[in-house]
Simulated scan of single mutants.
Amino acid sequence: MASAQPGVHALKLQPPCVSHTLRNGSNFIKWDEDLSTVTPVTLHVDPHGFYLFWTDQNKDTELLDLTFVKDVRTGRSTKPPKEAKLRELLDVGNLVGRLENRMVTVVTASDLVNVGQLNFIASQEDEAKLWCEELFSLATNLLSHNLNRDHSLLKAYVKLTLQPNAEGKIPVKNIGRLFSSDRKRIENALESCKLPNGRVS
């Protein structure tokens, strides 16, 4: 038929859209079964949707590249802690809803073998559901997995700014870790910009 459409259609990809809730952050409890630890944290996602990061009460920040996230679960798909004492610490009376429905489990993998989980507890079921849905959407965005040069540089810059030192400045050693294969060029670039270049390693 002359009016038939071609078999291949252009797919319109949308860039990541980070909601105000994820950008502003929410209070969660991060728990670790192996270490039997419970830590209050504030979860955030940067405005570009590159990283999930959390800050504890000591202002220490950890981050996770969202392209390493393979799944985000809540409700029946999660595995509550087996240890009774840990479960008791998490299932406190002032939180609303069933423990499983307040859990957010982030499944990560850098390859097919090294699979891990991060476990968080929200204060309410609706909050856990919102974070679960939006994190999964960001993690599976095709544009995030296929960055152009400019966005790759922006992603590197965002990573550096998310982990400043106590003075709010970017440590030189963090730059070294980000570009570890090119230490000499890092030192030369920092020197040419009249920036500190010691302790790159």
Score class of each variant (00 low, 15 high):
1 M>T: 13
2 A>F: 15
3 S>G: 13
3 S>M: 15
4 A>K: 11
4 A>G: 06
5 Q>R: 11
6 P>R: 00
8 V>P: 03
11 L>T: 15
12 K>E: 15
12 K>N: 15
16 P>Y: 03
16 P>N: 09
17 C>G: 06
18 V>M: 07
19 S>E: 07
21 T>K: 00
21 T>M: 01
22 L>Y: 09
32 D>A: 06
32 D>N: 13
34 D>Y: 11
35 L>I: 09
36 S>G: 02
36 S>R: 09
36 S>V: 03
37 T>G: 05
37 T>K: 06
38 V>F: 11
39 T>G: 01
40 P>I: 08
42 T>I: 00
48 H>R: 09
49 G>T: 06
51 Y>F: 14
53 F>R: 01
54 W>Q: 00
56 D>T: 01
56 D>K: 01
59 K>T: 12
62 E>H: 06
63 L>F: 11
63 L>I: 10
66 L>H: 06
66 L>R: 02
68 F>Y: 13
69 V>T: 04
70 K>T: 11
71 D>S: 07
71 D>A: 08
71 D>P: 00
74 T>Y: 14
75 G>H: 11
76 R>Q: 15
78 T>W: 13
78 T>H: 13
80 P>K: 04
80 P>V: 04
84 A>H: 04
85 K>C: 04
85 K>Q: 09
86 L>Y: 12
88 E>Y: 03
90 L>T: 05
91 D>C: 00
96 V>Y: 05
96 V>K: 03
96 V>Q: 06
100 E>H: 07
100 E>T: 08
101 N>P: 01
102 R>A: 09
110 S>T: 11
114 N>I: 07
115 V>F: 09
119 N>R: 10
120 F>V: 07
120 F>H: 12
120 F>K: 07
121 I>F: 03
122 A>K: 01
123 S>T: 01
125 E>N: 03
126 D>I: 00
129 K>Q: 07
133 E>N: 04
133 E>S: 04
135 L>I: 09
136 F>L: 08
136 F>W: 07
137 S>W: 01
137 S>Y: 02
139 A>M: 03
140 T>E: 09
141 N>Q: 04
142 L>T: 05
144 S>W: 00
144 S>D: 05
147 L>I: 01
150 D>F: 03
151 H>Y: 12
151 H>P: 00
151 H>E: 12
152 S>A: 02
153 L>W: 11
155 K>A: 09
160 L>H: 13
164 P>L: 10
164 P>C: 06
164 P>T: 08
165 N>I: 12
165 N>E: 15
166 A>G: 08
170 I>T: 14
171 P>I: 14
174 N>V: 08
174 N>E: 14
175 I>T: 10
176 G>C: 12
177 R>C: 12
179 F>S: 10
179 F>K: 05
180 S>E: 10
182 D>I: 04
187 E>S: 05
189 A>F: 11
189 A>Y: 12
190 L>T: 11
190 L>E: 14
193 C>W: 14
197 N>P: 04
200 V>F: 14
